[in-house]
Nucleic acid binder design. Sequence first.
DNA 1: AATAAATATAGATAATTATCTATACTGAGG
DNA 2: CCTCAGTATAGATAATTATCTATATTTATT
Lengths: 313, 313
Amino acid sequence: MQIRHLTFRLLQVFADVVRSGSITETAHRLHLTQPTVSQQLKRLREAVGEPLLDQIEGRQVPTEVGSEVYQLSQDILSRMDAFSQTLEEHRSGERGHFSIALVSTAQYVLPRLLGAFSQAMPNIDVTLNIGNRQEILNRFDRHEDDLYVFSHPPQHNRVRSVPFLSNPLVLVAAVDSAWTSHKQVTITDLLEARFLLRESGSATRHAFDTWLQSQGLVLNNTQYIASNEAIREAVAAGMGLGVLSRHVLAKQDGRIAEIEVEGMPLGSQWHFVVRNERKLPPVARQFLHRCADIIPELFPEEGTGQLDELARF
Amino acid sequence: MQIRHLTFRLLQVFADVVRSGSITETAHRLHLTQPTVSQQLKRLREAVGEPLLDQIEGRQVPTEVGSEVYQLSQDILSRMDAFSQTLEEHRSGERGHFSIALVSTAQYVLPRLLGAFSQAMPNIDVTLNIGNRQEILNRFDRHEDDLYVFSHPPQHNRVRSVPFLSNPLVLVAAVDSAWTSHKQVTITDLLEARFLLRESGSATRHAFDTWLQSQGLVLNNTQYIASNEAIREAVAAGMGLGVLSRHVLAKQDGRIAEIEVEGMPLGSQWHFVVRNERKLPPVARQFLHRCADIIPELFPEEGTGQLDELARF
DNA sequence: AATAAATATAGATAATTATCTATACTGAGG
DNA sequence: CCTCAGTATAGATAATTATCTATATTTATT
């Protein structure tokens, strides 16, 4: 069989003739002339090398081989339809894959968004890349992901960033420590304390340092701990004060309390960040759109008021 | 997506590029030039309307949509292969359908042949049309079947017939009747007897009548019974003599015995008959070929010695 | 036998496909 | 910065495809 001389059109036309049982009828249905259809059938017959239709009582009836060709046509055409459908889903952002890179603090909030999202959009896969600020910045520089989440977006002119959730950084101590008995702690009191802080690459640390600097303060007793979780535990154990995203604190963790200080909590915000050069895949856009609805539901207090910007990505 | 501008070739080429990871490599494998392959990819990309390949470290790697297209290609091309295979089976007579029309007496022998045949060739379907001689002749005149079985083939110049099995017509009586005690019955003895015979349209009847006539005999006591089975039972019950194909007699039926008369049994033979105008389908030819082997196995005594003719259909 | 309906064939043409050769671009390795 | 391998683009052409109109042939129905 000469597969080279076979075209989708041929199969389409043949399948219709088998269904209608008439060449003329098919010509009408496909807006062709009758000779065109006859011609196509002839070409198909020659490509296959066997008669495909018998005329029985004026109707076109497939021969045995014709029936095989009809099945072939059905299978192939319906596979094409399925593909068109899938393609459409990709285009409209209902199917596909995208990746998000996030700084580690955000891992307390993103999974909740993604959970709600992927329930609504089961055909979309997401890869999450989690690291500290510096690691994520490196990925950002190398264009490795479709979407980034920062609390302090890199200053870059080819970048678009939209804040979507408040990320209050709070000062915390163990519930039973001396700090929590004071009604109001003054800034200078802090100099006394021992601080458990993230390393310098971390966003939380950076924000806190900036604030200290703006207040003209220099701490004299700090210890570096690499993860927010370790800090939380250390604070709970009474080893000192910590600065943590309020999202890191489990709601029901009674061992830790916020300390109110003038100027705290620091009002940072999570931003979605995309590079303008890279075409945002439809699925990622879909995600941002949905987030505009998901965030107010999941975090009724903490949305940023610029959520409608997400829908304009 | 522009399905109209999609061809099998495009999918073939694309699939190979995905497999090889290189345009140049594919060009070599398919005996094309590199620009040709680039071109094809471009056309495919335009037909689909999305980028299909990324270059990653010098290799061609499908995008998400590209992977969908690759799957599409695999599915469609393997469906085509399956079709080619099936087509080949039809052509070579390993798959398909054909019909045989037979006179009712032959229903004792054909099913045994068909059983052996369809075990060997499970993808072939056969339709059996059974009737008395006249009914089968009508089907024959209307070209309704691919193959016919007659003991006396119609005289027709556009017909080919090959005898394949002897069909001895024997004279029978009940075991305990007076007839079976005679060592040798003479022809004239028969005139006395009461005969149970098939109707005039039947082949058996026709053969017997012809023989009687050649012997110059006229029976004076005959009764017509429409089926061979009914005749067998009636003979067993002692109601008279019968003329039956020896195949109709169950081997172990002790109630009936052959009567030896000069000139009996009548040596008729089953013939396969095909019309020359109608192209014999490959499957029917396949059947005839196989019969050349099956018959000596199933009926070691009764093959006709012209079996090798079957293989020349 | 005459007519109407369905199908096939012929001849033509515009569009598309499948290729090629020659040449330009582009990124990685020296 | 130069070269090479791999890819892309341009321009050309022969073959094929998708159509059409006009006409012939076949088949079914009065």
